[in-house]
């Protein structure tokens, strides 16, 4: 039995896995970027504006307000921001230099970073949701004059909220596929990968 066709199939499969890994990493970078940049919650009514991970604009009863809490959340998101160029650089390096031995490992490192970062992004969803719900709280209150009832504010979730889950799935898939490729390559050729 000639093992060459089987080996060729395996090589082709591992190459497809690597290409898929890079595609997933690209998808991760796009989704993560959109998640960080786009508004997650849009407000209307007494509260107008939006809240996102890196930016916000809030007008409560027509007055612009500043939120130190949201600003500090943006600092926590820095690792997620760093993961985007890291993923893109990994993809670019893999595209042009995929035959070089270290590059698939770098792609694997990039997808590991992406997986950690998407975990951070997922974790940021909860505080932002809590903040959003606190922003649209009932501003009705009682004073010496009586009970003041406001119209209230409505909170609309944007599709960007689904992106960290999708980004996490892509990052995880990218990591598994890159690991499979690297391990398959090592298995196929104990010789140095060139």
């Amino acid at each position: 039995m000639d093992g060459r066709p089987a080996r060729g199939r395996r090589e082709r499969a591992s190459l497809i896995a690597f290409i898929l890994s890079l595609t997933c990493l690209t998808a991760y970078a796009i989704l993560q970027l959109l998640y960080l940049v786009l508004p997650l919650y849009v407000f209307s009514g007494d509260v107008e504006g939006y809240v996102g991970v890196l930016s916000y604009r809030l007008k409560i009863f027509g007055q612009g307000v500043r939120s130190p809490l949201l600003e500090s959340l943006a600092v926590i998101a820095i690792p997620a921001i760093i993961s985007i160029p890291s993923a893109i650089l990994s993809v670019i390096a893999s595209y042009f230099k995929w035959r070089q031995g270290a590059v698939p490992w770098i792609a694997l490192g990039g997808s590991c970073v992406a997986t950690i970062a998407s975990g951070i992004s997922l974790g940021l969803k909860t505080p932002i949701s809590i903040i959003a719900s606190r922003v649209v709280r009932n501003y009705s209150h009682s004073t010496s004059a009586g009970h003041i009832v406001f119209q209230g504010a409505t909170l609309t979730q944007t599709p960007a909220l689904c992106m960290p889950v999708a980004a996490y799935v892509f990052a995880l898939a990218s990591m598994i596929l890159a690991a499979a490729y690297v391990l398959a390559k090592r298995e196929q050729s104990p010789e140095p990968i060139e």
């Binding site: 007055q63 606190r134 004073t143 010496s144 009586g146 003041i148």
Partner: peptide, 16 residues
Amino acid sequence: LNPILFAELSIPSVEV
């Protein structure tokens, strides 16, 4: 994490 949600928030109000 700065726990202050709003640096300044003036809620419209009426006093008698």
